[in-house]
């Protein structure tokens, strides 16, 4: 179970409230949702392609990604996941994993048995609806990634990814003003954007030289000019379907 008294900081509550309102009862139900919490190292697989998981995994702290390694050894990262995400929610209905899920940095994850999730959804059908909404938004993010990787140039493409991560992290309160944690190496960024590490590195230098962003070695990105970054990325946040939080 999640430590008591953490209703406001429970990552699943923060995440779900970023896309739909929750009632007090629903918030309480989430806080008491039983899960087994584990600390994982960086670059550790949570589930692998072809596995048949019997539980779902909630990211509590850290960063994870969905990925696939092609037969030639090249890796494609499909999506990045932040606290409050349940990246393998699909395993409730799709028995065999068609990709892998792994951590990018040291992370804390909560494992919830499928049966528990199913009972939870039956007891709180509106949360089931919100999970469905989240799954649809997940698909919307994939559509945007297809357009991004398929049609945008490296500069716009990487700028777009920064805009997306900033909006998503801000929605769950993990930003610090215009700064946000992005503990993703250039090689991982290359695997996510379908570019070579060298081109990613060069493009990052261009983005910094244009005064759009600042980065630290510890993986903190600061957006120096949000308007200009969005313009450079052709970024329209509609696809994230974020809901404004009640103050």
């Amino acid at each position: 179970m999640f430590p008591a008294g953490h209703a406001n900081s429970h990552p699943l509550i923060r995440k779900l409230e970023s896309i739909a309102p929750l009632s007090d009862d629903e918030r309480q139900a989430i806080v008491t949702l039983p899960m087994t919490i584990r600390d994982l190292n960086a670059d550790q697989d949570i589930i692998r392609d072809q596995d048949r998981p019997s539980q779902c995994c909630l990211i509590i702290e850290g960063f994870a990604c969905r990925y696939k390694v092609l037969p030639g050894g090249k890796r494609q990262i499909f999506s990045f996941h932040t606290p409050g995400d349940i990246p393998d929610l699909q395993s409730l209905h799709l028995q065999v994993m068609d990709h892998s899920l792994g951590t990018l940095v040291r992370s804390k994850v909560g494992f919830i048995p499928h049966e528990t999730v199913q009972e939870f959804i039956r007891a709180h059908p509106r949360i089931g609806d919100i999970f469905w909404r989240d799954t649809l938004i997940d698909a919307a993010i994939f559509r945007e990634w297809v357009a991004n990787i398929g049609r945008r140039e490296a500069y716009e493409r990487i700028a777009h990814l920064f805009c997306e991560l900033f909006m998503r992290l801000r929605a769950i309160g993990l930003n610090d003003g215009n700064s946000f944690p992005m503990p993703i190496t250039q090689s991982e960024l290359a695997d996510a954007t379908g570019l070579s590490t060298v081109h990613v590195n060069r493009t990052m230098q261009d983005l910094r030289a244009s005064g759009l962003i600042k980065t630290t070695k510890k993986g903190v990105v600061t957006i120096l000019d949000w308007e200009a970054l969005q313009k450079a990325a052709e970024f329209d946040p509609t696809y994230l379907h974020l809901q404004k939080r009640a103050a």
Partner: peptide, 19 residues
């Protein structure tokens, strides 16, 4: 000015071709 960490010179040349 930053450079990229890569396995060896051969990988570096391949990366340069891709870039």
């Amino acid at each position: 000015r930053e450079g990229v960490e890569l396995h060896d010179a051969k990988t570096a040349r391949q990366e340069a071709v891709r870039a």
